[in-house]
Design a protein around this nucleic acid. Structure first.
Lengths: 216, 216, 216, 216
DNA sequence: AATGAATGAGCTTTCATTCAT
DNA sequence: AATGAATGAAAGCTCATTCAT
């Protein structure tokens, strides 16, 4: 097993190289469908190195999952929403989420794959379980500021709000193929994308502002 | 005397038996993860019959997909929404969609699996491509009635509305494991379920009714 | 998995063919040292058949062990010792044991191998655990007859007697290489063999008859 | 100042550390079954040192074999049998052999392993081939003294006598698992051990004293 | 003298599938 | 129409070993 701390540049490079190729393979074919041979065939070192660095196909998959979840969490923290009004901040958050899913279909696919496996690897990885999503804290702050300012009238907690935001952003990408085929809608088309982004933001902000109660 | 049945009762029974077991296996493990041997081990006849009736693993998967998509489409038609007010009809539609996903996780998982495979089988199957979803027609009728009645002020087409409805209903089930683990929320809990159902319906209806424009 | 009962002649032949080759390979190289590929290379069918018939390398090894233990037990029953005097019967038993080990070095090696593995497979196999060795019953009968006739004066039970007989017969074959090399004695030479056979028989019979007590 | 030690204390210590762990591993799993990685995992230095000091897995095995054979030969020389009567000396020799096997199952297992490999390494090692077993000389002396004293009447040479002694002592330990399982006899139990020790000594001494000829 | 990093070759096993009747 | 027997191809993984300093 390789040590963690003092790694040669090349070793780290090889590791990252494997990881990048593996992410594509797992995103493309799922955990069961991915082939270790296929990953090996696309990197400069041999298949043996995959086992040297990651121990097993599942170990590699786990590393990919950790990397990929780390990506979105890292970006979320750079948003700096406090200087915006609650509604602007919320819209910013929604648009970031929308764009991230749109631009990272691999992330979406890998999360889908992990759910097919009952989230077993996510549960198993301490790193992943401890990914204290900053998004919930950010949303909680927005909600509080909005309520204090008398702007939000709907009773919803940060986790449910996160779900309301994530669901359509995720679904547009995850179900692109079946939805697109059945209803002849190209989710990737720029005008569709912009329309959906507005639609999602408007509906959620409107819901929080609270006219929904009138409609009910 | 009805001579319609094209297959012997026993043959049809065997077919259905295989299909039911296969649905579970494919929903549980995905297309690549499913094992023909595992299906064979759980049916009353032999493995050879799977190939006899369905030709290949993919053929069987396709049959499962067709059966499963047929299920939701069939139910959608029984709703009889015309006697309800547009808002009531819409709420009914949303709640039906919510409940169907909640009660048919296999359907949700199989659609996820099919998306991992880029919807290749759905595209390939004429039966599935022709599943002219009645849901779009139903939603179009509701939209039209609501606009005529001056109730809906938001410009949205039936397909996008369908997406807005399906996304949260689907996501709650498809991403149950990762979302549940990361945010410690049990999507299956009855009170969560009822809250989500209300939340989803309220936000969409509120969006259509149109206060969202104020919020923007 | 193949059914047990109605097997085609060819199938049974293939099975026996694999078994025979596997016995040689396991006897020659042990369980860990044996190569499934090496077995496959020497039979007319493919390696795949080994797994078809025996499930795993260990399953095959177990089958070999069962076959090989069955062999000696089957022969033991054909001895018909009751018509001989107790001493003659005992000598017959010893000589049979001696000859069997001498002529079946594979059996000896496989038992050695199994002991290296702590008898794990023997314990695990009901078939083998139930191999109620008839040899113990035979020896018990001889002992009883000899004592009733006033011929045997030494207090020893059938199991210990069996050990006294087996030990030298087994050791001569199992340790042939190290003993032969260290002490420059060719255990396989005919005159050595005959001398040893007499030596072993004489010492055990002498011990039972009882003069040993005088010597002590 | 003693400049004899050819290696640094640390180096020698490392060597001995590796050797001790390797003996356990080879005794436990055999030559093919032993894993270099498993040995490495249990030593204080790295796996690389195994190759540095011993060249190869086989080189390490050979070193273990030499160490282990050296052990019993060294002890045999400390017996000082000349001051005892021939019969007493013989009994002493038998009991020593019995106890040594009983207390050093690793030795027994390694000899079994080496025999599975046709004694190839023993033959190959000059050190081992030159291990001029003092046991044969000791036994020859006892035999001569016993015959001169008119105590032993059986015609047997020292090597065959050594076999008669070693066989049951070795077998009890080497075949402990299979024999124990098949005949439900716990070879390790203290009362069994003592009974066997007496049994073996009595039978061999009795045989030499010569009443066996009467029984024949 | 000592060692961390890397690896080619080959291992057991699994998989969907087809042969042959 | 129905099926038991058989299988080619490739999968994930492990092994003792050596490179390079």
């Amino acid at each position: 097993m390789p040590h963690i701390a003092p790694r040669k540049p090349d070793a780290e490079k090889t590791r990252q190289n494997i990881l990048a190729v593996a992410r594509q393979e797992f995103a493309e074919h799922g955990l069961s469908g991915a082939r270790v041979d296929a990953i090996a065939a696309r990197i400069s070192t041999t298949k043996r190195m995959i086992y040297y660095y990651f121990g097993s196909k599942e170990g590699l998959y786990l590393a990919v999952l950790e990397q990929v979840y780390g990506g979105i969490r890292g970006l979320e923290q750079t948003l700096d929403l406090d200087r915006l009004s609650p509604i602007e901040a919320l819209r910013q958050m929604i648009e970031f989420t929308f764009d991230y899913h749109e631009q990272n279909p691999d992330f979406v696919r890998l999360v889908s794959v992990e759910n097919i496996h009952h989230g077993a690897h996510l549960k198993q990885s301490e790193t992943l379980r401890n990914l204290n999503s900053t998004v919930i804290a950010s949303l909680a702050t927005i909600l509080e500021r909005g309520r204090t300012a008398g702007l939000f009238h709907t009773d919803i907690d940060a986790v449910d709000l996160h779900m309301m935001i994530s669901a359509p952003c995720f679904y547009r990408v995850s179900n692109r193929y079946t939805f697109g085929t059945l209803f002849a809608r190209d989710m990737g088309a720029p005008e569709v994308r912009e329309r959906h982004k507005r639609m999602i933001a408007d509906s959620i902000i409107g819901y929080l502002v609270g006219c929904a109660t009138i409609a009910a």
